[in-house]
Design a protein around this nucleic acid. Structure first.
Lengths: 197, 197
DNA sequence: CAGCTGACAGATTTCAAACTTTGTCAGCTG
DNA sequence: CAGCTGACAAAGTTTGAAATCTGTCAGCTG
């Protein structure tokens, strides 16, 4: 919708594609729409991205990276690891649930990529599991937690809380008790991670 | 396919409807198909079930009950509660995963009912949570577990293992590591349930 | 007269033809 | 001559008319 005559960079294409996805959703967005928004022919878009799928993946990658930024464990180092873990899980849930509310079409795109088991989503999941592993390893270092290996523990915590952040469960997030349910699972998990006295 | 002239009971209609659902799936099965299989007009089916949805729910109810039978905690009382819990979770996962493989159309019906949040599925989930609560309460009685209230704990364990039995996650069940992942989550959960020395 | 039938209205689904989109590439253009 | 265009084939989607399905009910039948 802004056919400005400027160099056609990957950056500009991604911006336009994200906008088109946000407005039309994954089902209706087309490469022609993206080209139209840039004021070029759709053939030009194919000079920068080999397929529509590659373009969509690139949009998702950028956008999942942006989204995961506030989940860097280095950003919250106050208090016991158990509490940092709860805050992290609640932040993740809030991010996903907020996206589902405020950006339903981009969220639907994310859901589709997850259903298709795209590599970009696997990378995002690995990133989240690594953040959990970091918090758990930190708890082990301080003597608060005692697990043989923080890596599978991190993955297990992510799996055990799938209901609260996995896009497949989005329809369950409107239940009023969902926050209490997350805390109940967290309670069990931190007792499981905790060192014996 | 067996137009035997006999009394038209709810039982016989449910049998026929289950068969039709199994063969055609939730998307293509019609009330006319069910009537045809019974050798009656579709109007007759409506004398016994008010709507197609009610008929489908009744088939699902009967079939979920049958399916949950081997999950009665009274059927496995050997050994520590922690191990009974693992066996129960593995049995649940095996039942769901086996159904997805052997009866894909009925499983798809179940998935649809879950997505639509039908009451019949809520009852099934309550039943499963109650079974978990029973195993946990048993562990508390024997001093093996120490939780303030086994009821929310049972629900939390069911939620934390959603990835391994919830129909939304069916596509993830073909991963070879899925069994190990379940045991990893279980390990964390039983440590969380366990009494302090 | 209890239980089934079959005709019916309105809603939903199917199907095939028309149209749109994807991905390629020969050639134009600044 | 790097980068873009626009015409094209194959694949996929939309559309609307025809067919089917759902749910009702007056009347038939054993």
């Amino acid at each position: 919708m802004t056919p400005v005559a400027a160099v056609l960079t990957e950056e500009r294409i991604l911006d336009a594609a994200e906008d088109v996805l946000r407005r039309f959703g994954p089902a209706k967005a087309t490469v022609v729409d993206v080209a139209k928004a840039l004021g070029v022919s759709h053939g030009s878009v194919y000079r920068h991205f080999p397929t529509k799928v590659a373009l969509r993946d690139a949009v998702a990658r950028r956008w999942l990276d942006r989204l995961a930024e506030p989940l860097d464990p280095a950003r919250d180092t106050e208090g016991p690891a158990a509490e940092r873990l709860l805050r992290w899980l609640e932040r993740l849930a809030a991010i996903k649930q907020g996206m589902a509310l405020n950006d339903p079409e981009l969220f639907a795109t994310f859901g589709q990529l997850t259903a298709e088991a795209r590599e970009v989503v696997a990378a995002h999941v690995d990133h989240l599991a690594a953040a959990l592993t970091e918090i758990i390893a930190d708890g082990v270092r301080s003597g608060e937690f005692a697990v043989p290996d923080p890596v599978p523990a991190g993955r297990a915590v992510l799996h055990a809380t799938a209901r609260f952040h996995h896009p497949l469960h989005a329809s369950e997030w409107s239940a009023p008790a969902i926050g209490a349910e997350l805390r109940e699972v967290w309670r069990l998990l931190v007792r499981g991670l905790a060192a014996r006295p």
